[in-house]
Design a protein around this nucleic acid. Structure first.
Lengths: 228, 228
DNA sequence: CACAGGTAAGTAACTACTCACTCACTGGAT
DNA sequence: ATCCAGTGAGTGAGTAGTTACTTACCTGTG
């Protein structure tokens, strides 16, 4: 019953530049990039495969040649995005030197500024809210390392008498909580920043660290920026 | 062309208890309650009007008699849920007495324990992520009052010499940030709590307040619980 | 020619929302 | 007491559009 179909790409008009047909891997990377942006702004259910295909500049059919389902694509994105970065190495170095300010500054700086990819937070929140298993796993494994390290450091420094005694895990979460809330306010709720990221980092570190130190340096009183 | 339709409620069999047909207002309240729970767990796009109707126990048609669109229902929910409670009054009383610990404890307690409705956080996050105007407005108006009050108090106490000098707005956000993060971890990411809510409140208050006080009470060193 | 890369045109299921209709109950006029 | 128009609460059966995913096909290049 169906009449003759004329599908496939249209015959390219002569003289046009060769369009560099990308390899499968390049395509996949392109799809992931484009899809991540869409998922981050609209969520999983709020993003259609049609939109993704259009945003990449391909047909939906090709999309499904690369990823068997929409969910598989989503999982691939989360897997790629989620990685505890080179942060821990440099922090551990500062920790060995007992450079408290540096330890906290590195962490704060990483959380506030370097979180390079602004879509990650949204992506993560969406996936957590929408109940994808991956995000829970992410928080339990990847993030736990982070908290545990900080909690361990605080415990150690308290033993050494440099920090006063507090619940270390709670303090670790409190510190990262401050920073997470900072990003949440700005990136999700659109509250305007009233100071530069560097200033914010320094202020958070001073606020928290000076509250923790037993011997408190009564330096310049107001808004803090000891050294860069 | 359509044949005879037999619609309407089925004739009740004799002897059954009178089913108390609710008034319009009661119905609306029922719809809002049921829909709020669904929106909170699945998000706006993840919730269908069919589900809502089924959950209330009515037909979709009746749903649309009460709320012209799905979005209107959602807006009604947010409008109803969002209200800055009696918190500020009691906090202001404590503030007048300069009872620092009480001020921070009231706030922390409200944020961690009393946030009565566990769906509100999810609802709010969803609406923020999905970009509904209401949530941005909520944070800019309702929450601003909150931050401003706390920032004002910190400023005042710093002037009086009781608190050390910090950026007050940043400190206010840092404190609420710790608490927000706490709820986020438990309610959204499912991280298990390692102490009771009361203990958490006391610990957060001690952690933060003792970091802020100029004259620091070197009381019992470890996990804090000064008084109930 | 083989084949990876690509597509137009489906399809079945679902979505928000509508339509045309039926009840059960009210408060007079008879 | 009984009729009866009016009304608010309620519904089954749509509809037009969208969604994730499939099928059957095409084509330039090593």
């Amino acid at each position: 019953m169906p009449t003759v179909k004329t599908a496939g790409r249209p015959t390219r008009s002569r003289g046009a530049a060769p369009p560099h047909r990308p390899s499968g891997q390049e395509r996949q990377a392109g799809i992931i990039t484009a899809a991540a942006a869409l998922f981050a702004t609209n969520g999983f259910k709020g993003t259609t495969t049609k939109e993704i295909a259009k945003s990449v500049g391909i047909s939906e059919a090709l999309l499904f040649k690369h990823f068997p389902t929409k969910r598989a694509l989503y999982a691939a994105i989360l897997k790629e995005k989620v990685s505890i970065p080179e942060l821990l190495a440099s922090v551990e170095e500062a920790a060995k030197k007992r450079d408290d300010r540096q330890v906290f500054t590195l962490i704060a700086s990483h959380r506030i500024r370097r979180s390079a990819d602004p879509t990650l937070l949204r992506l993560l929140l969406f996936s957590a809210l929408e109940g994808h298993e991956i995000s829970a796993m992410f928080f339990r494994t990847q993030h736990r390392i982070f908290y545990d390290f900080l909690a361990g450091y605080i415990t150690q420094r308290a033993k050494e008498g440099a920090f006063r005694h507090v619940d270390p895990m709670l303090a670790a979460r409190a510190f990262t909580g401050m920073l997470a809330h900072h990003r949440l306010l700005h990136e999700i709720f659109g509250v305007p920043a009233h100071r530069s990221p560097e200033d914010s980092v320094a202020a958070y570190v001073t606020l928290f660290l000076d509250g923790l130190l037993t011997a408190r340096a009564e330096g310049p009183p107001s808004t803090a920026r000891r050294q860069s």
